[in-house]
Write a protein that binds this DNA or RNA. Structure first.
Length: 200
DNA sequence: ACGCTGATGAAG
DNA sequence: TTCATCAGCGTT
């Protein structure tokens, strides 16, 4: 067997959110799941930054839901959306400043059979090409909100397997589903890898 | 194009 | 306490 992966450290997350977002592309998300691990490569993310960003939940200020985004970086911010789906974010920047990166799509790597079960028999190409889908595939829900992502012994963490992403591999667009946010909806804060699965 | 679904925060 | 809204998905 290969050696165990090491979780990306606090210092990785305690940076400018766009830098973290870009650097997360190509990294491996690990969901430990009983005896096995469900893993995938991050292919699409979005930045949500501060109380001035009308698309960011923290624009409502510090509330029970947004509390975790005000906390230290390197923790999971997981919320229920549209009454049915979960979304998984990683908290960024310095403690006290609310910001996060939404993980929107993954390329499945290991544990694919279990992912298909979790996704009710979906095709492999349709397992994790959306933020709600990847949470369903990896069985991520709000009970894991606030989890520490910087500990490779935790049930959820991210590591670098050496996969190289060139700046020219990264495409940008406006964020998805935030039309209500006025001019903030137009900002090109979505980052995704071309030639790899991402939500459309 | 639409219905599903329930937490969330704002209004009263 | 009600109410509109919602960082999505599957089906039509």
């Amino acid at each position: 067997m290969s050696e165990s992966p090491i979780a990306l450290p606090y210092s990785f997350y305690a940076r400018d959110t766009h830098t973290v977002a870009r650097d997360l592309l190509g990294k491996i998300l690990v969901r430990t799941y009983g005896e096995e691990s469900l893993t995938g490569r991050i292919t699409e993310v979005e930045s949500y930054i501060g109380e001035d960003d009308l698309a960011c939940h923290a624009s409502k200020g510090r509330t029970p839901r947004t509390e975790i985004m005000f906390g230290p970086p390197g923790h999971a911010y997981i919320y229920l959306i549209y009454g049915m789906y979960n979304c998984f974010n990683v908290v960024t920047e310095q403690e006290g400043f609310p910001a996060a990166v939404l993980i929107r799509a993954l390329q499945p790597i290991s544990g694919i059979k279990q992912m298909i079960v979790n996704r009710n028999g979906a095709k492999e190409t349709n397992l994790m090409n959306g933020p709600g889908k990847l949470c369903q595939a990896l069985n991520i829900d709000r009970t894991m909100n606030g989890g520490d992502l910087t500990d490779e012994n935790s049930e959820l963490f991210i590591h670098d397997d050496g996969f190289k992403v060139a700046p020219s591999d990264i495409q940008t667009s406006a964020r998805i589903g935030v039309e209500y946010a006025g001019e903030h909806a137009l900002l090109p804060w979505r980052y995704f890898l071309q030639n790899l699965p991402h939500s459309k």
